[in-house]
């Protein structure tokens, strides 16, 4: 595992030197962070409002009509994948070894699978619902899971900096893969 992580950190940090140069410039990191937060709001706004409708809020809005907001949520997600990758490529050690980041990815994968389930199972039935109708039970579950997962993604993202592993003196890519076994050996 350590070998893979060292390789991954090395690959990420050499992948796009232009990105790292921008991110290390005076305003690079704060600008990318601001965009990441704006993307987060778009994502939770569009997808969260849709989830709330599935859960029974604003029943008089036809679900199909509200679904037109979703591409904007995906746009927010795209902004965040791009800016998120920029963080990852600039400081891979801070993320590749960070449990908060691992959980964040896990919750994102769960949210993705959940969305896939939505289009595979209740979506077709929903398209035929008259305005004012409650969403079927499967869709309500999807809405609840989606909201929970995205809120968990936000919390994990915000907590990332508090689980940042501390350098142990080794340098170069993958320094923590050297540090962690050393730290564990001491316990």
């Amino acid at each position: 595992m350590a070998t893979f992580q060292i390789w991954l950190v090395h690959a990420l940090s050499t992948a796009s030197p232009g990105v790292a140069a921008f991110m290390r410039s005076h305003w690079g990191w704060p600008v990318a962070e601001s965009l990441h937060f704006i993307g987060l709001c778009l994502l939770l706004g569009a997808i969260g409002v849709f989830d709330l409708r599935l859960l029974g809020v604003a029943k008089r809005i036809p679900i199909v009509a509200l679904h037109k907001l979703i591409p904007w949520g995906l746009g927010g997600f795209a902004i965040n994948v791009i800016t998120g990758s920029m963080f990852l490529m600039t400081e891979p050690d801070q993320y590749v070894y960070n449990p908060s980041f691992h959980f964040k990815l896990l919750f994102m994968a769960a949210a993705g699978l959940n969305a896939l389930m939505f289009y595979l199972i209740p979506y077709k039935a929903i398209r035929r619902l008259p305005p004012g109708a409650a969403a079927p039970r499967a869709a309500r579950i999807v809405g609840a899971v989606s909201l929970t997962m995205w809120l968990a993604v936000i919390v994990c993202g915000r907590l990332l900096t508090f689980y940042r592993p501390v350098a142990c003196g080794a340098t170069g890519p993958g320094f923590l893969a050297e540090c962690i076994p050393a730290r564990n050996a001491k316990r």
Binding site: C41, L43, L44, G45, A46, G48, V49, W72, L151
Partner: peptide, 8 residues
Amino acid sequence: ALVVGVGA
């Protein structure tokens, strides 16, 4: 996210 999300 709630304030700006719903507002947006």
